[in-house]
Write a protein that binds this DNA or RNA. Structure first.
Lengths: 219, 219
DNA sequence: CTCTTTTTGTTGAAAATTCAACATACATTC
DNA sequence: GAATGTATGTTGAATTTTCAACAAAAAGAG
């Protein structure tokens, strides 16, 4: 646990909590660390949500597969971020998404009821953590809106351009790397992969962008 | 203010707070009530979010219009519900959506910083309200996921059926009324209106549903 | 009640997406 | 380094969606 202290100090769930208290809190919360190899599932669609996840190392992908086999990728989880906090806070009985490790990852799991309900020891951090969760949930809501703005575009080209412009803005540069391969990008944008490839080629021919694999350069 | 007490007692923001304290709190929060005629805008896309809204009467619609003029309807706000709480909690400088009254409505506005930061009077309800906000934000996240599950379907027919099945589940009956006219339903599902009308006719001819305006009956 | 406006359904043509199949490039494994 | 498997780009055909235009029905205004 000790080796993650530096990272946990900067985790949104523990914002405003002094390092000195952290280890004690983690114990009080019953936090445990689990290891996942690449491609292993952390949480499965359809199962109850009990745990707030904190990604200690590696990276995860959130996705959903519908009745017809279409996969939607909701996004990736990066180091230090929380995941599935909304489902855990709402105690959902059937998670609407799955979370899968896209590389070897270490995850901290905290039973959400331990955060929400004051423990016998009455450690005074619950209020702070609930406040932190509230801020985090509001942020996540915004991220969700951002993706919705992209996927609500009607055509493949508009979706792609909206997404790339967002990436450029986030990177603060016209050159950036997207965290998805072609199939994943198609599933994030909710379009056909081959159509997406064709559209990227077209944009390249039109001189609107250059690209090499996951690297893009907007002109 | 008095006349709304009954409704406010059941508002998610004030859950677990005794009626006796409510009036005093509202004063402390600087809550004010505003009146909006049909079609008037409560919050505009692109403006800063400062206020948590509580719908006292009437109904509102949340929507967004993109660069090409395509409108996306995110959903309606019903009596007693909070709205724009996520944007206010995250202090966004440019709201990604607009909120418009679809009938004559009364709205209570609470400056979010008054909820988040303890006041001089140190009234002890901030913790409870922050907890309530956290629960509400988690719930809203789920609602958002529900809509995303519908709009992520690839075809008009699948989107429509996914939405109608959701409505039927919510209504607990195969007969129900949707809160949208055809154009609004198309903008909620993010499809073409005429294509949607055509699809409804087709489903009717196939004996899958009956419908009259906003009333539907799944067979 | 009448006139005007809005809503809804219908149609056909144009445009875009999806799907399947394949070739090439790239990465991984043994 | 050869062989296998995966990722990407390309193509054409089938399907869908979008768009524009219009007619009928319904709602709202005066």
């Amino acid at each position: 646990m000790q080796k993650y202290l530096e990272m946990l100090k900067n985790c949104p769930l523990f914002a405003g909590i002094e390092e000195a208290s952290l280890l004690r809190m983690l114990h009080c919360l019953g936090a445990r660390v689990e290891h996942f190899d690449k491609k292993y599932t952390v949480f499965s669609e359809g199962t109850p949500a009990r745990y707030v996840g904190i990604l200690l190392s590696g990276s995860l992908q959130m996705s959903r597969v519908d009745y017809y086999g279409n996969r939607s990728i909701l996004g990736n989880v990066k180091q230090g971020e929380l995941f599935c906090e909304a489902f855990a806070c709402a105690s959902v009985e059937a998670m609407p998404i799955s979370v899968v490790a896209i590389e070897e990852s270490e995850v901290m799991l905290v039973d959400c009821s331990h955060i929400l309900h004051t423990c016998q020891n009455a450690c005074g951090f619950h209020h702070q953590m609930i406040y932190n969760l509230m801020r985090d949930l509001a942020e996540k809501n915004l991220v969700f809106h951002q993706r919705a703005e992209v996927t609500s575009k009607r055509s493949t080209r508009e979706k792609l351009m909206a997404y790339l412009l967002l990436c450029a803005k986030e990177a603060g540069s016209n050159r950036f790397t997207v965290p998805f391969d072609r199939q994943e990008l198609a599933d994030y944008l909710e379009v056909d992969r081959s159509g997406l490839s064709a559209e990227i080629s077209k944009l390249r021919r039109e001189g609107i962008l250059e690209s090499d694999k996951q690297r893009f350069h907007l002109l």
